[in-house]
Amino acid sequence: MSKIKKLSKESFPLLIKKISETQHVYGPVSQGKRISYQRISSADELASDFIIPDMSAKSFVFPKIEKLFSYTKNKDGVEVQDINLDNIPHRVVVGIRPCDAAGMESLKAIFSWDPSDPIFETRLKRTTFIGLACNQADDYCFCTSLGGSPGDTKGSDILLTKTDTGDYIAEILTSKGEKIVTLAPDLFQDVEGDLQKEKFLANVPKRFDNSDLQNKINAAFNTDVFDEYAMRCMGCSACAFVCPICACFDIQDETKGSKGQRVRLWDSCGAKLFTLHTSGHNPRETQGARWRQRLMHKFSYMPERLEVRGCVGCGRCSRRCPVDMNIAESLNQLIIDN
């Protein structure tokens, strides 16, 4: 249903203003040394000239803290109060990067895999993604090695590509995207001919050949390639938490007196507690086994079970790793060795 329109640079802020009259609008905002997706009320607040926000967009559908239900203990037992899905807001995210948007497809596969998660589903359904194609990239970007691209439309409801004049090519991709257009149809101009979107996209060279990646990574399972990683990886959760797809979670009860709530929190396979048994045994004893799990889950188990990969090549884990655990380099090494 893709339709191509033009959105002039003057119309873009007017569109943000129009949307924010009825819905909460979010976009990449600069806060000192940090760029993150934040609530905005005008286009002026949006950060410019950067590669990618520090945190991914997954928190729109899988926040770092998700209340699942609340409970009250009384003399007859425990009374459970479900959360009211009606309270989940309608939101529009402007300027989401194509890799983050593509990550939504993988998250959807995880959270709808038997049983479907109603909170996630509702959040996703009520979020509209207006993507912004990448016109710059850095050495850590490797979306093209995993089938993505700086202008990939996957996961976006509208994809904007900024042209050399500052105007945008707008691809209207879904019915949610159509709804945005109907809010301000006059701002979107019809176009004739090919606008040559490709001309305005960043160049992201392929870092490795992904054909047969799953088999090659499986073949590495019992090799000593992970020994060096075992020493270097310091076992924090930064890679998992900045990742647009890592979705492992921890469940905690927060109780105060007779009342409490059950929450879902981000968790990470890099942490030693992740698999520690109460007996004291840990099936992933070393940091090398944990790093292997991170790769196997993303590039073997997820493709096998969900038919999607657990990585879109945004490069955040490698950019933010305090000890330079570079995932693309690691994959490349596994491909060469196997």
Binding site: R34, M234, A238
Partner: peptide
């Protein structure tokens, strides 16, 4: 508010 409790500070 930005802290994600990844414990990189502790591990480093």
């Amino acid at each position: 508010e930005s802290c994600i409790k990844c414990y990189a500070c502790r591990q480093a």
